[in-house]
């Protein structure tokens, strides 16, 4: 059977209406946030996560990060919860159980959407068996990004949810300035040679470590002076105490020597 897709099939999160929060509940919620003065109980709802979020939540409540310091306690039933923590991109099968858990929690309740999948569907955002995030089915109060959020990011997120810390991130738009141009890096080194060095560094040690090593190496190449290039390169590699980095620098030196020859 062939079924062709339409715009609505792709876009719609489902025919279900979004849940509205009545005004009195909103008032109760802000009162809860301002004046909690007691432990906040958290209930986790896994809406189809991969378990990375679940395990990091575990890590947040165990000794090293110990979120219970702030009275944050994970409870066994949504009926006891102040905060509902939704993980996962909301799979088709978990939509109803998630809604039932939401209904079961008493008002006022704070809904936290946890991890990239919860916040926006993450890497799974447009798949056929997910709805693409908590806020597609429920009103959400706080979003904690991360894939998964680290325990420290979790603690920060709880603090934001409880109004203890303000959020740092703000929407920003950069508009290209007049005459804004990107200069070619290391202009004194022939472009093709620079590309060869950077590629080799990435092949040897990956984009991050290799990139940093290549940068150091290129800065050294650019230094003016009368010392011959080959001598400079070998002195540079010899001064390196980490044998693996020395090996990589020697390899970059070979690349330069081969290119010049």
């Amino acid at each position: 059977m062939t079924r062709h897709i339409t715009e609505t099939d792709v876009r719609a999160a489902g025919p279900f209406a979004k849940i509205d929060t009545p005004a009195d509940v909103v008032r109760m919620k802000s009162a809860l946030l301002k004046d909690i003065r007691r432990s906040a109980y958290v209930y986790r709802v896994d809406c189809g996560g991969c378990n990375a979020c679940e395990i990091e939540i575990f890590a947040s409540i165990t000794p090293v990060f110990d979120a219970e310091r702030f009275g944050i306690k994970v409870v066994a039933s949504p009926r006891h919860a102040d905060i509902l923590l939704f993980t996962g991109a909301v799979t088709r099968s978990m939509r109803m159980p998630a809604l039932r858990a939401y209904e079961a929690a008493p008002d006022p309740k704070i809904v936290v959407s946890y991890g990239a999948c919860g916040v926006s569907g993450g890497i799974f955002h447009d798949l056929y068996c997910v709805w693409g995030g908590t806020d597609k089915i429920l009103p959400v109060d706080v979003y904690i990004p991360g894939c998964p959020p680290t325990p420290a990011a979790t603690v920060y997120g709880f603090a934001v949810a409880l109004g203890l810390l303000g959020q740092k991130l703000k929407a920003e738009t950069h508009v290209q300035a007049e005459g804004e141009r990107v200069a070619v890096a290391h202009p004194s080194i022939p472009y093709n040679l620079r590309v060869l060095v950077e590629r080799e560094a990435r092949r040897m040690a990956g984009y991050r470590q290799g990139g940093d090593i290549a940068e150091k190496f290129l800065v050294m190449l650019e230094q003016p002076g009368l010392v011959p290039l080959t001598d400079r390169m070998s002195t540079f590699a010899a001064a390196e105490t980490d044998p693996r980095v020395a090996e990589i620098l020697a390899r970059l030196g070979d690349v330069v020597t081969e290119a010049i020859a």
């Binding site: 916040v119 904690i144 959020q167």
Partner: peptide, 14 residues
């Protein structure tokens, strides 16, 4: 890593 927000629009930068 401190990225949590209450306003979803604040997660976007353009």
């Amino acid at each position: 890593f401190e990225l949590a927000v209450a306003v979803k629009a604040d997660l976007v930068r353009t």
